[in-house]
Design a binder for these strands. Structure first.
Lengths: 210, 210
DNA sequence: TCGTGTATAATTGTATACAAAGATACAGAA
DNA sequence: TTCTGTATCTTTGTATACAATTATACACGA
């Protein structure tokens, strides 16, 4: 396991990013550094360093009035899926070509867990495994650029995926689509991986954006 | 004009990002916060806030040893063009549909300046106008997501575009391609804009990645 | 020569003090 | 009532002090 101590700044960033992307703070509401100091129990320094990163992701905006929560809108959602539809097939095609056996094994484990939780109707963990599967795919492309571009897009969809994973038939089909993607990668078939991912993103888009 | 005072943290970020993306610090070299304090004449606070952002862009990496410069590699370059080829045509098609007359006028002005500097063989300013043209296109799509995704990709190519703009025949053709894109947008022809941008990115890719 | 342990120095991480800009509340005049 | 000016408070921006971890240099022994 990874015992590396992670800085307060990183912890604060992860927590704030998650809270904002899950919609815990409504769009248009204001936070202040002082309030975050109270809530999180750390000084302003790590909080400010987090805010700079959140600002760069355009999910907050800082002014003399305070910290404006932007979050992710439905318009953003549509644009995100438009981009993912263009990009993810290319990325998995690459992954099919260059992924290591270890990476493929990890994808397989994640998919098995997803299947398990689908059977249990545990939507929180389904969502987590779904996220992990995509993240592993990005990483398996061995491209920092692909990873850095797609991971933020995927994270921003979080809030909207909730209904999707709670729908049983969609959860089943989503699992099947993931399995098709993994099979193509296991077979080192880049074209099949491309097609499988294209179908998967199209279906996810239809189901979420509607 | 914009007289808004910009924070030291923002100034430091812009300067460091530029220096790194232009290759001023070689990949693999180390900086320290202390050295930057000396060089830039500001305290560690704004410098650290900049570093967190650069870290997020994966162009530096901070450890107990110091600040490792990553910059942009040739592999990154190829992946960036692969992504831009997928994304930019879609973005200009959108821009053709939604850009305001003011935005189109600004594109026209930028293009005229590009023509002027091409005539003068002023490669620095050609490069600047080229960047500005693309940035205006992203903005004219009226999509924060498109803008946030494409602008970093475009900025990372900076260093490699130098040879391109210094090549007279490529500079001429690049200008002509820009004009084709703008004409399509002026005509509100999304399909033509899509095709023109696709051709432009393909040509740029061939010329730069080779 | 090579390794090892230790002291020192260098570096980042965090907290806090102070500065500056701006928002807010309120009194008073038209 | 409505507007305006002013004092105060709130909020972010910056610098600095201190803590903790890690790298480095060097002496010493095998």
């Amino acid at each position: 396991m990874n015992h590396k101590t992670v800085s307060l700044a990183d912890q604060v960033f992860e927590r704030l990013e998650n809270d904002i992307l899950l919609g815990k703070y409504p769009r248009g509401s204001y936070l202040t550094e002082h309030a975050l100091v109270e809530d999180l129990g750390v000084s302003r320094t790590p909080i400010r360093e987090s805010l700079r990163r959140l600002e760069q992701e355009h999910i907050i905006e800082v002014s003399s009035r305070g910290i404006l929560v932007l979050g992710v809108t439905l318009d953003d959602l549509a644009d995100i899926y438009a981009m993912r539809l263009q990009l993810e097939p290319m990325v998995v095609a690459r992954a099919a070509a260059v992924a290591t056996d270890e990476e493929i094994a990890e994808l397989r484990e994640t998919l098995e867990l997803q299947q398990y939780y689908v059977g249990r109707h545990d939507s929180d963990r389904i969502k987590f495994m779904d996220s992990k599967f995509h993240e592993l795919l990005y990483r398996a492309s061995h491209s920092t650029v692909f990873y850095d571009t797609l991971l933020p897009l995927h994270k921003k969809v979080q809030k909207f995926r909730k209904a999707s994973v709670e729908n049983e038939s969609r959860a089943d089909r989503s699992f099947a689509e993931h399995r098709a993607i993994l099979s193509a990668i296991e077979a080192r078939d880049a074209d099949a991986a491309y097609a499988a991912m294209q179908a998967h993103v199209e279906n996810a888009k239809m189901h979420i954006v509607k």
